[in-house]
């Protein structure tokens, strides 16, 4: 018994169910998507704008601005009319309006992670806190966020899709998360950067809760998933470059929260990484890939020495929420 080559059955089942949920949702609004009717097309456009523009406006500028954005999205998902670009729009204007908006919104959160968090790590927090709040009130959107995230970044499951017979190399690279176009496959650094962005967004989501929520229930997707993700990663054979990069990203963002939550058990995880898993990573690393490995090692040594993990940079503070 040792490390596995793929994720456990339960993980894969969960992953497949979510993909199925997303597919069904996509099918539900197919008529809206393929409509030729100009009027319906217009409506679709307004719905999409109402869902995606607020997400693109999320920034760390102030707590009150985030609240406004949150309220706008919540209103839309609750079927109430919202105003965007001077026009009023509501999901009640189409039988599948709600499904459409939920799908587009989820997709947008993930894209924002891929594009923005990738080049600007601290952006993960304001995006994640809004996503988490929406997830709490509208769990369907949460499932869709997961499904989109898993599709664009299988490591967020984590899942290492095997190459199936009959899949072309190009198609397989796409499944692994690479961008492939006429000019070829994207370079490794650019790929890693996007994957980092999405993992950082995920790591921020599982530790954050919308501060204005009045629900007393459990976090819709909380730190237990942080445990699950780490455990699942560490039970699998490491991949060169990818594993070190993403473990570091994940731990830097939610290591502090996990440490507080799981205490001794979390330190057992870190110790296992340092003493047994890290050598396995090193064994698959070549000289040109030492950057990610060194960053991870530095993080582990630092944490174990200080018996402490620093809170992540860019975390939203209580004074932020008063602004």
């Amino acid at each position: 018994q040792g490390l596995q080559n793929s994720a456990e059955e339960s993980t894969l089942k969960w992953y497949k169910e979510l993909q199925e949920t997303a597919n069904q949702c996509g099918q539900a609004f197919e008529d809206l998507n393929n409509t030729k009717d100009m009027q319906t097309k217009k409506l679709r456009m307004e719905l999409q704008k109402a869902a995606t523009i607020p997400v693109s406006q999320i920034s760390s500028i102030s707590g009150s601005q985030l609240k406004e954005i949150f309220d706008k999205i919540d209103k839309l998902l609750s079927g109430r009319p919202t105003v965007s670009g001077g026009k009023s729009v509501s999901t009640s204007h189409h039988p599948h309006g709600l499904e459409y908006v939920s799908y587009k919104l989820a997709e947008k959160f993930v894209k924002q992670g891929e594009e923005e968090v990738a080049s600007h790590h601290e952006a993960a927090f304001p995006i994640a806190v809004v996503a988490s709040g929406i997830w709490e009130l509208h769990p369907k959107v949460g499932d869709l966020i997961l499904a989109h995230l898993h599709k664009k970044c299988p490591y967020s499951v984590p899942h290492y899709p095997p190459m199936k017979d009959g899949t072309s190399m190009e198609e397989y690279q796409r499944i692994l998360g690479y961008r492939v176009d006429e000019s070829g496959v994207e370079v490794q650094d650019s790929f890693l950067k996007r994957m980092s962005g999405m993992i950082r967004l995920y790591a921020a989501i599982i530790q954050l809760r919308w501060p204005h929520s009045n629900k007393q229930g459990p976090d819709p997707h909380g730190l237990n998933h942080g445990w699950r993700w780490l455990a699942q990663m560490l039970n699998m054979e490491p991949l060169a470059d990818v594993t070190a990069t993403l473990l570091f990203d994940f731990l830097e963002v939610c290591g502090n929260a996990l440490m507080k939550q799981y205490q001794g058990q979390f330190w057992k995880l870190l110790l296992l990484i340092k003493e047994e898993y890290f050598p396995r990573i090193k064994a698959v690393t070549s000289a040109g890939q030492m950057g990610s490995v060194t960053r991870l090692n530095q993080f582990l040594e630092n944490s174990l020495r200080k018996k402490q993990i620093d809170p992540p940079k860019g975390q939203l503070t209580s004074s932020f929420w008063r602004s």
Partner: peptide, 18 residues
């Protein structure tokens, strides 16, 4: 210590944090 490859995917019980 955990055994390599055998970490439970479910989170630990609250009674066993230390």
């Amino acid at each position: 210590r955990f055994t390599l490859g055998q970490i439970p995917l479910r989170p630990p019980p609250a009674e066993l944090l230390t």
